[in-house]
Design a protein around this nucleic acid. Structure first.
Lengths: 107, 107
DNA sequence: TGAATAGATAGCTGTTTAGTTATGAGTCGT
DNA sequence: ACGACTCATAACTAAACAGCTATCTATTCA
């Protein structure tokens, strides 16, 4: 459907980009140079990848002095989670059941 | 990490491929021509996409006479679900909370 | 002010990829 | 056996893309 799905899926299809996002998710805020050191590719390449991730809403950059600190925006994974739920009802059958249960309990 | 992640992510990054997979998930088994009619692209293009999905384990094809019936293999979404859970602790938390709740209720 | 540093942008290049048409390999109906 | 049909494969093309180097802007520090 939306451009959202497309952007998120496309952004995460590249292994390098996924590794960048993983690092941000697991280790928290990082500067571009820190990410570059770990990525094993040039700084411009990293900046470009971060641009793609940013445009998809998966990360955001806070500028501080001459460095930019990037942070993972994990909520942006929502379309992906939602989609996998709709497709493989299987997994999240367990989750859905619990949600139903919660709903019933609320009443 | 694994080639699994890579293949699944890469396969699902293409919108056309995602639509094919969606159709198979939501409507069940389909022949190539049925999928072609809905896809709006040539039959060879569809076959190629199905090949990519098949190599990633996301679909399987059963041959019957001169047609091939494709089926979605939703379990192949496992790496994706697993990954999103590891990344977005967020979702996990919700799931864990509910699991805790269930456990408490069982007692 | 001037040198150095951090990051973004521009421009280029080789490779991948999604689509096309043409054709090949099986299978069905007559 | 033969023509029609279903699907897969081959060969090609145009566009997208990930990487690079060079450079520009902005900031810090001497």
């Amino acid at each position: 459907m939306g451009q959202l799905h497309d952007d998120v899926f496309r952004s995460l299809s590249d292994p390098t980009r996924r590794r960048l996002f993983e690092k941000l998710c697991l280790e928290g805020e990082q500067t571009v140079s820190a990410l570059t050191d770990a990525a094993g590719i040039s700084q411009p390449a990293v900046s470009k990848h971060l641009g793609v991730l940013r445009r998809a809403g998966l990360v955001s950059g806070r500028q501080a002095g001459r460095q930019t600190h990037y942070v993972a925006q994990q909520e942006a994974l929502a379309p992906l989670v939602d989609w996998t739920r709709r497709m493989g009802g299987f997994w999240d059958k367990r989750l859905d059941d619990m949600e139903d249960l919660l709903r019933r309990m609320d009443q």
